[in-house]
Design a protein around this nucleic acid. Structure first.
Lengths: 213, 213
DNA sequence: AGAATAGTGTCTCTCAGACATTATTTG
DNA sequence: CAAATAATGTCTGAGAGACACTATTCT
């Protein structure tokens, strides 16, 4: 029997220049690739994911979640390749720690030509990210440690692609109990805004009303 | 580098004798195992899942969904093993097709001693199954092709572990549009009940009201 | 003073959840 | 006709969604 190769890929999402972007690595020919790494015998899948991003996994600034495992024969023409795919939300504060090399950010609505089945993997990751945002308060994972409610709302609007009502957004996100006010404020143009932060003790996921109770 | 072994496991759920049960294979020593198979070079992960159950995958009667990929080093003491785990809902009509051998059904609340990390995998699969039922109409996957609303409600009650209101259940499941009435009825003790069936053209998942619209 | 952004409250209408009676069949 | 199960409708309360004005700071 021929060997089955196992690697890990990480779809890295970040917020840059008012848009949702993905961090990609240059591949062979002129297609880009989702950063990946082969799984070593002694490391966990998440450690392999860290090697794929080429950073130490700092869970404070990188949210990592397993997405799906792709394994169709023929997805890679050269070998039988099974890929465990993660997606990562990288806090703006952490962008500077990502590798300088030849990797680059691309807005999700202006992706370059992609290797293998990576375009459909990114499309799926994006679908899951939007879904996750609708049912949880994960948006702050893309922001600095402290942020204003307007920034958070703006993040949701960018990712979901629609305008949200300010009063309803504030009411819901606050009564979800995921974030809390800090004593700090951010000055700039206009009235200074109160800064909020994630409550690490909060339950990560707020359950939506279920369908068949 | 030592080799990384890749296999597929399937947590098989079925409804038997008024309880939710899992179909397990005998392992070494006297622990039981979630049925599994090593991934061959030329087959897809789902084909490997079919081999694990030792049946041809009949999607009409077996609902199969990828659950999670487990890969911590040390989860198997003898080798580095990465397992892609699926869960399956097997229609009552199909139970007879499952392999006769030494495999056996166990109620989920009376599991035997399990190998490796299989107990926690089943616990996770069960959590996901309950969650799935709350937000979708997947319960009929465990029933025969045609079923009464009382049977369907009963299925939900067994899996969710709580009594549901009959009128509310009917109203919600019908207006979800996942099932449709057939002209048939089932006679027995008491008034005969109308039989329903799944609508294959229906959208599989009904979206719950989202949290941040 | 004006421009810019932050911050706040109410009303309506939909839908989830609780609840009891009638209808149809079999023995 | 008694026993068993199927089938059906209404009311109430909570919360989602729409909506406009005041507050604070900077230049």
């Amino acid at each position: 029997m021929t060997e089955v190769y196992l690697n890990v890929h990480v779809v890295i999402f970040g917020l840059r220049e008012e848009s949702l972007q993905v961090f990609l690595a240059p591949g062979d020919s002129n297609a880009w690739e989702i950063p990946g790494a082969f799984v070593q015998a002694a490391e966990s899948l998440e450690e392999a994911a860290g090697r794929a991003i080429a950073v130490q996994l700092d869970r404070q600034h990188i949210y990592l979640e397993q997405l799906y495992t792709y394994g169709d024969p023929g997805r890679d023409p050269s070998k039988r390749l099974v890929s465990v795919v993660y997606f990562a939300l990288v806090s703006a504060a952490f962008h500077g720690n990502l590798p300088e090399g030849r990797m680059r950010w691309f807005p999700v609505d202006a992706l370059p030509s992609l290797a293998c089945d990576h375009a459909s993997i990114i499309a799926y990751a994006l679908r899951r990210l939007r879904y996750k945002l609708e049912y949880s308060a994960a948006g702050f994972q893309l922001l600095p440690d402290e942020f204003t409610l307007s920034e958070l709302q703006h993040t949701y609007e960018i990712i979901l692609g629609e305008k949200l009502d300010k009063r309803n957004f504030r009411r819901r996100i606050l009564q979800a109990g995921i974030i809390e006010a800090t004593p700090h404020r951010r000055s700039g143009e206009g009235r200074p805004a109160r800064l909020y932060r994630y409550r690490p003790d909060a339950v990560a996921e707020v359950k939506a009303r279920r369908l068949f109770p």
